[in-house]
């Protein structure tokens, strides 16, 4: 029988739909009977959403500026004498 610790070990696989049918059934059975694991799965899901919402915001402006400068230099060198970029 699937114990709470076993479920915690495969919780991400369950959330991402990476488990086989029989494993999914035993997780669902366990979740029916175990409020603590339901809460764990719900919270893990919330943490995943939080992560996705958060990390898409990160941008290192200083690095972006340095890249822009290098790209711009290379483009100008390449385009000098050719068509002028915007």
């Amino acid at each position: 029988m699937l114990m709470c610790r076993d479920l915690a070990r495969i919780a991400s696989d369950y959330i991402d739909g990476e488990l086989g049918t029989s494993k999914v059934m035993s997780v669902k059975m366990h979740l029916l009977m175990c409020g603590r694991c339901r809460s764990f799965i719900g919270s893990l899901r919330a943490s995943i959403e939080l992560m996705s919402a958060h990390s898409s915001q990160q941008l290192d402006e200083d690095l972006v500026r340095r890249i822009d400068e290098r790209v711009s230099e290379s483009l100008n060198a390449r385009n000098s004498g050719g068509t002028k970029p915007e």
């Binding site: 114990m3 709470c4 610790r5 076993d6 915690a8 603590r36 694991c37 809460s39 764990f40 719900g42 919270s43 899901r45 919330a46 943490s47 959403e49 939080l50 996705s52 919402a53 958060h54």
Partner: peptide, 27 residues
């Protein structure tokens, strides 16, 4: 997380997180 389970594999310190807040609200 492993430390929060009893030797019998059940939760000893169960999750206390409230999952009803949306990610956007939390952010």
């Amino acid at each position: 997380l492993a430390a929060r389970f009893a030797p019998n594999g059940r939760w000893a310190t169960p999750p206390s997180l409230k999952s009803n807040e949306s990610a956007q609200a939390l952010m």
